[in-house]
Simulated assay, not measured.
Amino acid sequence: MLSGELATADLVLVAMALPLLVASLVGVVFSVQFGVAMGAGSVPAGGTLGYALFYDPPASE
């Protein structure tokens, strides 16, 4: 996969990291406790992990 294409696994990694990044920024910038913000961000990240593991698991090529 050296042609610059994004695989589903790459997109799943981005989809897991993005809510955690947004939650950390919200926890730092706004008056929300950092732990609460990260807990809220972990819900969609965990859902993405569940999707990647159980709904669309990686297949060996």
Results as ranks from 00 to 15, higher is better:
L21C: 11
T8I: 12
V22N: 06
S24G: 11
G50R: 02
L13H: 09
L53P: 01
M38K: 11
F54T: 10
F54H: 05
G47K: 00
L13W: 13
L49H: 00
F34H: 05
L6K: 02
V28R: 10
M38S: 04
P19W: 04
S42T: 12
V14M: 13
Y51S: 02
V22Y: 03
L18D: 07
G41I: 07
P19M: 07
V29E: 10
A15E: 05
M1T: 08
G39W: 05
V29W: 08
T48L: 09
V14I: 15
D56K: 00
S24Q: 12
Y51F: 14
L21H: 02
F34K: 06
L49R: 05
L6C: 10
G39Q: 07
F54E: 10
L53Y: 10
G4T: 03
V32R: 06
Y51V: 11
M1G: 15
A59T: 12
V28Y: 14
G39S: 14
V43Q: 02
Q33N: 13
A9E: 13
D56V: 04
L53T: 07
V32A: 10
E61W: 06
M38G: 00
M16K: 07
V36Q: 09
V26N: 04
V43H: 03
A17T: 14
D56M: 03
V12D: 09
G39D: 09
L49Q: 03
V36T: 15
A9T: 11
F30Q: 08
E61Q: 03
A37P: 10
S42C: 05
G27S: 06
P57D: 03
A45Y: 00
V29Q: 09
E5V: 12
F54N: 11
L6T: 09
P19D: 13
L53M: 12
S3V: 09
V28S: 08
G50F: 06
L13F: 15
A7Y: 12
E5A: 09
V12A: 08
G27V: 04
G4P: 13
E61D: 07
L11Y: 11
M16R: 05
G41Q: 01
S42L: 13
F34V: 07
G46N: 01
L13N: 15
S60N: 07
S42Y: 00
Y51E: 06
M16A: 14
G46D: 02
P44G: 00
A17N: 07
L11M: 15
V36I: 10
L11V: 13
